[in-house]
Amino acid sequence: MKFDFTDEQYALRDAARELFEKESSPARLRELWGGGARDARLWRAMGEMGLLGLMIPEQFGGMGGDEVDLVLVLEESGRAALPEPVIETVAIAGPMIAAGGSDDQKQEWLPRLASGDAKVTVQVEASPFVVDADIADALLIEKDAALHLVPSTHFDAAAIQTEDPSRRLFTVTAKLSDATRLGGGLFSQMFLRGAWATAAVLNGIAMRLLEMTVAHVKSRQQFGRPVGSFQAVKHKLASAAVLIESSRSCTWYAAYALAKDLPDAPVAISAAKAYASEAEGYINTEALQCHAGIGFTWEHDLHFWLKRGRALEQAYGSARHHRAILAHHVFDELDRGSER
């Protein structure tokens, strides 16, 4: 038994962290928030590092990895509040096209996804909005219990104003046809994959919020001592640490269950997303509280993570949504009388 990552997986995590710190710094985020243009370099660099092809089969230019290989990279994208459709392109579209695409679809899209030449965004039935539709080369969409992969020539996108300008949402009108259909049997996977990947990103956001808050309360002095020496502050942050670390364990297991195709993967994913939304929600509240006045300013970087966190708590099913699924599961098990 080894519930841990390999040295290679940790090395990739470190490389991703370094890249994101360099190419997607808070200063860079601030430019985007001010209406600045996106920088195509970041996505291309991610492709060169192999991050975008992690879950794409080797024959199509990818690394042939699985969710366990990806999960730490997703955390890092959250730690950096990366303004890119990593969840949609890397965690959802890539593996789903690889699993359900026709030969033509695979040939057309997978090598470009792996290299960073193309981005694919997704629309799930649960949400009217689509992230980054303006820069997506294709849209993976659920409609009437079928999946379609629609090239950008066949959909129109209208921008929605959002609270987090580095997470841009759109409504889309897509022309669906038999030619755009993606293989059957994968319908329910899109939402689940999105929920799992979002849980991992939320864990990264929560880690960053905790790191920023710990640094702040260590240096901020009041009453002649660091405010982080007061138990009222310490205990909030200790609670956050417990929630975040157990949330990571939960999301890592969901990654493993997906990678191994275990029967409890859907339940593990709902538990992971419910828990991650709660854990991030807790530190989201307390990070601002502990930063106090300075945290409530536009100038401070904290709100990049506060707002991304609040957005992703709701994406691919809120905690409440997934808890309802879990309750349903518990009563189902009762009916089946299987307790062990």
Binding site: S247, C250, A268, A271, A274, E278, R323, I325, V330
Partner: peptide, 10 residues
Amino acid sequence: IGALFADAEA
């Protein structure tokens, strides 16, 4: 029940 199940999983 959903929340406690998630707790137990975590």
